[in-house]
Amino acid sequence: MRILVTGAAGFIGYHVSQRLLERGDEVLGFDNVNDYYDPTLKEARLERLEQHAGFGLMRASLEDREVVERAFRVFKPERVVNLAAQAGVRYSIENPRAYIDSNIVGFINILEGCRHHSIEHLVYASSSSVYGANTRLPFAVDHDVDHPVSLYAATKKSNELMAHTYSHLYGLPTTGLRFFTVYGPWGRPDMALFLFTRNILAGKPINVFNHGHHRRDFTYIDDIVEGVVRVLDRVPAADPDYDFGHATPAASAAPYRLYNIGSDRPIELMKYIGLIEDCLGRKAECNLLPLQPGDVPEAHADVEALRRDVGYAPTTSVETGVRRFIDWYRAYYRV
Score class of each variant (00 low, 15 high):
A313Q: 13
N260T: 06
V296C: 02
A284M: 12
N207L: 11
A238S: 14
L288E: 03
D217T: 11
D278A: 15
A299I: 14
I200H: 07
D295P: 08
L306G: 06
G212F: 12
P290F: 02
I261R: 06
L193S: 06
R282H: 09
P314S: 07
N199L: 04
Y312Q: 07
D239R: 13
I276K: 04
L289I: 07
I224L: 11
G274E: 10
P293Q: 07
R257V: 00
G212H: 05
H300Y: 08
I273Y: 04
H211G: 00
I224N: 06
C286K: 15
D222R: 11
A202Q: 05
C286N: 14
V235S: 00
A237E: 10
N199A: 13
M270L: 15
K283P: 05
A305R: 15
D302Q: 11
L291P: 05
D223I: 09
A251S: 14
A313S: 14
T315H: 12
A299D: 06
P205M: 06
D233L: 14
A301C: 05
V225T: 08
L289E: 14
G262K: 02
L193Y: 03
E298V: 09
R257W: 01
P314C: 09
S252V: 00
I206D: 02
H246T: 04
V231G: 05
A254C: 03
D278S: 13
L195K: 14
L258A: 03
L193I: 14
L275I: 06
D223G: 06
P255S: 01
D295A: 04
P236Y: 01
C279P: 04
L288Q: 02
I200G: 01
D222L: 12
K283W: 01
P236W: 05
F218K: 13
G245I: 05
E277A: 11
L195W: 05
R198S: 11
T315V: 05
D278M: 10
D302N: 15
V235T: 15
N199S: 07
V296D: 00
E226D: 15
L291Y: 08
D239A: 11
K283N: 10
F196S: 08
T219H: 07
A247Q: 02
P249H: 03
V235Y: 09
F244I: 10
D223N: 08
R234G: 04
L275Q: 06
P293N: 08
V303D: 04
L280A: 10
D309M: 09
E277K: 05
D233Q: 14
N210F: 10
F209G: 01
